[in-house]
Design a protein around this nucleic acid. Structure first.
Lengths: 143, 143
DNA sequence: ACCAATTAGATTGTGTGCAATTTAATTTTG
DNA sequence: CAAAATTAAATTGCACACAATCTAATTGGT
C-alpha cells in the first residue's frame, strides 16, 4: 500500500461524503427533511414497526443521534413513536400515511444526486463493492 | 444507472466515511487531536504561512468550521494565528515547532487505519480514482 | 421471590459542518 | 476621493455524531 497516499484516500472519502450529503440536503428541503431524517424514513418499511435500536443498527446510528431526529420526524407527521406494551423500555417507530407518501417521492431525489455526480455504471459498481468490503471487514473488529 | 441502488451507494459512502473517521479519532487521542485538527495540521506545510481561506479551500471547510478548530490547535500549541500586516482581514496560520513534530508522527496513524480496513491495492486505487472523479465533477457545479 | 446484571432509550457534553449574518478592512467606481 | 461593493474572519443558529452517563424496565441467577 503506497504510504504517501493513505491520507488522500480517507480524506477523499470524507470530502466526497460531505459533498454528496450537501446535495441531498438541498434537494430534500422541499420535503422539510434533513439527510438524517431522509435515511431514517427510507430505512422504515411501509407496514413495519421497529425499535430505535433496530433502526439504529440499520443506519449505524445510536439513540443519542436518533432520538432527536425521530422526535422531529414525529412533529412533522412522518413517523409515530409508541412505547411497546410488551417491553416498556422499547419505543416502537413506524411511518404514518404522510410518511409513506413522502417516502415514495424520495427515490427521485436520490436519482438526481447520482445523476449530478456523473459517474459511469462501472464506477458505480466498483465504488459500491469496495465500500461494502470496507464496511463489512470493519464489522467484526467493532464487536 | 440502477435506480434501486442509488440510495445504497450514497449511504455506503456516508457510513464508511463515518467509520473511518471514528477509527482515526481513536488513534489520534494520544496526540490530543480530533480528525478535523488532524487534517488541518496535515494540510499545512512545515514552513508555510497560509490564510484561513486558503486552508479552507484545501480542506473543503469554511471559517465557521475552521476558526474554532484553529483556536483549539493554537491552545494546544500546534499552530499559531497572526493577523496579516498587509491585509488586516486575513489571519495567517502556521505550524509551531511542536506542530511540525506531531505532524511527522501522523502518517503512522493513517497507515494503521488503512491496514485495519484490509483492502487490496487494486481496490485502493479504484476507490481513489472514483472518488476523485466524483469530487472533481462536482466542483464546476458548485461555482 | 430477590437482587445483581443487563438492556433500551433518553440525556448531556463536546466537536464538527454549514448557511446566514456581522464586522472590519480593502478595493472598486462614479 | 468618498461612497458602494467586495472580501476575510468571526459569530450565530441549527442539525447532526458519538461517547458517557442516567433512568427505568427486564432478565438471570440463586
Amino acid at each position: 500500500m503506497p504510504n504517501h497516499l493513505d491520507n488522500q484516500l480517507c480524506f477523499l472519502l470524507y470530502a466526497t461524503s460531505k459533498e454528496i450529503i450537501r446535495r441531498y440536503t438541498m434537494l430534500l428541503k422541499p420535503y422539510d427533511l434533513t439527510y438524517t431524517g431522509y435515511i431514517a424514513i427510507l430505512a422504515l418499511e411501509d407496514d413495519e414497526q421497529i425499535t430505535v435500536k433496530e433502526l439504529g443498527q440499520r443506519l449505524f446510528l445510536d439513540s443519542g443521534t436518533l432520538t432527536p431526529v425521530l422526535k422531529k420526524l414525529e412533529v412533522k407527521g412522518y413517523v409515530r413513536r409508541e412505547r411497546s406494551k410488551e417491553d416498556e423500555r422499547q419505543m416502537q417507530i413506524y411511518l404514518t400515511k404522510s410518511g409513506i407518501e413522502v417516502r415514495q417521492k424520495l427515490p427521485e431525489v436520490s436519482r438526481q444526486v447520482i445523476k449530478q455526480s456523473n459517474i459511469t455504471e462501472q464506477q458505480y459498481m466498483q465504488l459500491r463493492n469496495v465500500l461494502q468490503d470496507i464496511l463489512q471487514k470493519d464489522c467484526p473488529i467493532k464487536d
